[in-house]
Simulated scan of single mutants.
Amino acid sequence: MSGSAPIQLRSRAEALAARLPPLLVAAQHLAQSVEMGEHGRRQSGQGEAFWQYRRAQPGDPSHRIDWRRSARSDRHYVQEKEWQAAHSVQIWVDPSASLAFSSDPKLPEKGDQARIIALALASLLLRGGERVGLLGGAQAPRRGQMTLSRMADQMLRADAPLKDAFAVPRARQVVFSDFLAPLQATRDFVQAAQDRGQQGVLFQVLDPMEEVFPFHGRVLFQDVGGALSHDTREAADLRDRYLDRLARRKSELSEIAKRAGWRFHSYHTQDPASAALLWLWNAIGGPIR
């Protein structure tokens, strides 16, 4: 290792660390903007939170009778608890270079917005007592607010492609990407998750420019990594073909999700992140089948 390598490594580490607090602050602020819920799980069962009283029925054991409440009536009452079996949710945010894009300095990069929404979702889930983790991470989903800090740190360092490593049986999967790359890896992942009995969400994050293709005249198109380029004299001639391919891509993603019993949503970075978070919260909030 050259003498400059440790210095470069430290510089990269410090740059990552500098991004961590603002990312967490933005995610927590976003989470606070969404009304908390309990995933629609309000039904009686095992748990600690009081839900309601009901009249005692034949077969109810005597230790379940609430004698203080029963003393105010000529009937016996049982105190029911709310079912609080925790869900496990695993999140993956695409680390591809294509998400390091913003068409306007006033707009966030796709990857940054995806990470903020993902962490805000994790924050809501953790507050609700759920277990949360990163798909492909070194640890299974956990509870506790320290989990959020670990996830944020790991998200910024992640570079692994979509995979099913460390997938928890029946855990819900939330996949953030622009899904502009070939879809075979996505198909394979969703199929494998379906085979494991896992439900989930494909959440597409696009820049508004990618939705409208506002180019005219001579334009040199390059991918974010600089490996691919296309020079055209009249970009407007490509618009209809591009928009048709984008529409077909969304249709494919919707069909992939539908066949597996998943949900698909397309989000643009100029739209309110709170609306996206609320959609996600509702999308994964139903009881596991």
Rank of each mutant, 00 (worst) to 15 (best):
S2A: 13
G3D: 14
P6K: 03
Q8V: 02
Q8G: 08
R12Y: 12
A13W: 14
A17V: 04
A17F: 08
S33G: 12
G37N: 14
G40Q: 12
R41V: 00
Q43K: 12
G45Y: 08
D60E: 09
R68F: 12
R69W: 04
R69P: 06
S70H: 08
S73A: 13
S73H: 13
S73Y: 09
S73L: 11
E82T: 10
A85C: 09
A86Q: 03
A86N: 01
H87L: 14
S88E: 09
V93Y: 05
S96W: 04
S98G: 12
A100Y: 06
P105M: 05
E109M: 11
G111M: 09
A114W: 00
A120D: 05
L121Q: 07
S123C: 11
R131F: 07
L148C: 12
A152M: 04
D153K: 05
F166R: 13
V168Y: 03
V174W: 06
D178K: 02
P182Y: 07
A185W: 10
R187G: 02
A193C: 15
R196S: 15
Q199L: 11
F203Q: 01
F203K: 00
V205Y: 06
D207K: 03
M209A: 12
H216V: 07
R218W: 06
F221V: 01
G225T: 06
G225N: 07
L228P: 01
S229M: 09
L238F: 12
R241L: 03
L243W: 06
L243R: 00
S251M: 12
E255Y: 11
A260F: 08
G261T: 04
W262I: 03
S266A: 15
Y267L: 02
D271W: 11
P272T: 10
G286Q: 08
G286M: 07
